[in-house]
Design a protein around this nucleic acid. Sequence first.
DNA 1: TCCAATCGGACGGATTTGGTCCGATTGGCA
DNA 2: TGCCAATCGGACCAAATCCGTCCGATTGGA
Lengths: 151, 151
Amino acid sequence: MRLSSLADYAVVMMTAAAREGAGGRSNATLLAGQTGVPLPTAQKLVSRLASAGLIESTRGTGGGIRLARDADTISLADIVEAVDGPIALTACVDGAAHDCGLEMQCRVRPHWHVVNQAVRAAFSGVTLATLAADPVESQVMDVSPRPGVFA
Amino acid sequence: MRLSSLADYAVVMMTAAAREGAGGRSNATLLAGQTGVPLPTAQKLVSRLASAGLIESTRGTGGGIRLARDADTISLADIVEAVDGPIALTACVDGAAHDCGLEMQCRVRPHWHVVNQAVRAAFSGVTLATLAADPVESQVMDVSPRPGVFA
DNA sequence: TCCAATCGGACGGATTTGGTCCGATTGGCA
DNA sequence: TGCCAATCGGACCAAATCCGTCCGATTGGA
């Protein structure tokens, strides 16, 4: 039940990218410097995030990356799935690969689907805009929904 | 974001053990036969589950294992944490080990705590009694639209 | 007292993950 | 128009973790 390091890094990098503003451009080298992620790893993540359609990348001199959508339309689930693949607690829940090996008419399986959806909902409920918000406010009261909260 | 195979097996085995009834005794060999889990692996799991206090094991001839508590007081979170360790999405959320490596005053960290709690709640909400219940009932409540599928 | 049955911990192999490097592509500049 | 610099994109390799197996320790019955 632990998130992969790559996914963790990706979230941090996307948060840094979001702080550049809507049209602000950045690049892998810059993000690596801001976040502390090793540069080669940052490059790999940029590649994956671009493939998933979360960021747009332009090559060549003066190129860089840019958020493909607004920050409030990108959820934590999007980022994690872009790096780690679909959020699937067990092999049963994702469509493919039913080589469960366990003979019996698995009684547990239908329940996994419910749990999996709950987990995914927890990730989908957090947007990148929330993550990029001022840390002071979010640090003090996170769960309580104060009125007029940025985002 | 995938559960370990060991944890998956443990859930299946605990479900099988719960179907033995409150005071019903079983053993690692029997559970392995019922669930399809390889015997050595089943033994390892029994060991861990006993250490966590979820089951009580007695050695010697005629020994075996037995649920330490009622099935409705054992949650999915208990089983998973007994095998995989604490449910912690990142290294930040579990108390120890703050060797994050990332310099900056991590803006993302306070949010991880919220997500982690939500995930843990999803696991805590499902009891072993629910898992051991008649699959027909749980199947109806399930999202799976097609009738009479599984396996 | 001996024997059989069961749990408990230790070891080795295998798959996945994470990190690094080099090539392909593009825009700017002389 | 040709060259060069900067950037992304994919492939390779090492490391760590996870899974499966085996053997020893312990206990109750005959």
